[in-house]
């Protein structure tokens, strides 16, 4: 099965092409845009390029996986509109992948194991504690648990992608990686930073990912008491690699939809609508 994956909810457009064969997914090619928030200009050419590199035509595709949000509203729309129109024109099924879950998957070491082309760009977290401690800023709760002494066990680490939603808010969620896929532990949704830190307060080991780290890293370190790490930049942001993997899994679980059923996941009302409803007391 030939899968095209699109991820435009972050600052850089990312497109991947993957082949799936009885549960084994291989990333054949991936292109990440170089210009911040230039999705509209870059996405369609990147798709063309990814297919060219894989020596394929659009007609060879079987499934389109798209990161449906949360994230940049504009980015979400460009990705979803593109996926919908491709599926409509090519008569393909599509799958809307939650961006936070896909991002959480980047924390797992599998990013190396599964993809050949992807390997060069990616880094492992669990396997090499030494490297992890170099790349991640960690605060140990007490010295006996300092990063030099303890390995980070990914199975016990709560993976928290947080995306900057402006005005001290984030779109965030907490996941454990089980059998290579994220399992929701802290409900994905819009939070104030304070609310989110409260929600993850009782977890001893937390890895934060996403552009929320760039924005709120210092604040997070200030309030956290348990062990805390930030994903290294190589795996910190949204990427079509994990959208392809998760999309493929969702497909096998029967979660594909027709193009007109693919919905964006904004997680927040338009500001004008919120104000209007407030005024109307709804």
């Amino acid at each position: 099965m030939n899968i095209l994956a699109i991820e435009t909810t972050g600052a850089y457009a990312s497109v991947a092409f993957a082949k799936a064969d009885r549960g084994h997914v291989q990333i054949i090619s991936r292109i990440n845009g170089q210009d911040r928030f230039s999705h509209l200009q870059n996405l369609a050419p990147q798709i063309q390029q990814v297919l060219d590199e894989a020596n394929l035509a659009v007609g060879d595709l079987d499934l389109i996986a798209v990161s449906k949000g949360p994230g940049s509203f504009t980015g979400i729309r460009i990705g979803v509109a593109t996926a919908r129109a491709l599926c409509q024109a090519l008569d393909l099924p599509c799958v809307g992948v939650p961006s936070l879950e896909a991002l959480a998957m980047r924390a797992m070491p599998g990013e190396i194991a599964l993809g050949t082309g992807a390997a060069a760009n990616c880094r492992q977290i669990e396997a090499d504690a030494q490297q992890t401690s170099e790349n991640c800023r960690k605060i140990a709760a007490d010295d006996s648990q300092s990063p030099e002494n303890g390995r980070w066990d990914l199975g016990n680490t709560l993976i928290c992608p947080i995306l900057d939603a402006k005005r001290s808010q984030v779109y965030g969620g907490g996941y454990y990686i089980r059998d290579g896929f994220p399992v929701e532990e802290v409900k994905a949704g819009p939070y104030t930073l304070e609310e989110f830190m409260e929600a993850v307060k009782d977890y001893d080991e937390v890895l934060f990912m996403g552009d929320g780290v760039d924005k709120y890293g210092d604040e997070i370190l200030r309030v956290r008491t348990g062990r805390t790490a930030f994903a290294p930049e190589e795996i910190r942001y949204q990427d079509a690699w994990s959208v392809a993997l998760l999309g493929c899994k969702m497909q096998t679980e029967g979660n594909t939809v027709a193009f007109d059923k693919l919905q964006p996941e904004y997680m927040r009302m338009a500001e004008a609508e919120r104000k209007l409803r407030e005024k109307q007391g709804k």
Binding site: L40, L43, A44, I47, Q48, V58, F73, T74, R77, I78, A81, T82, A83, R84, A85, L86, Q88, A89, L90
Partner: peptide, 16 residues
């Protein structure tokens, strides 16, 4: 934001 919906859609059709 309005223009880009038409554009993303048109480009995807053209590409497809």
């Amino acid at each position: 934001g309005a223009l880009l919906i038409g554009l993303a859609t048109a480009k995807a059709y053209a590409l497809a």
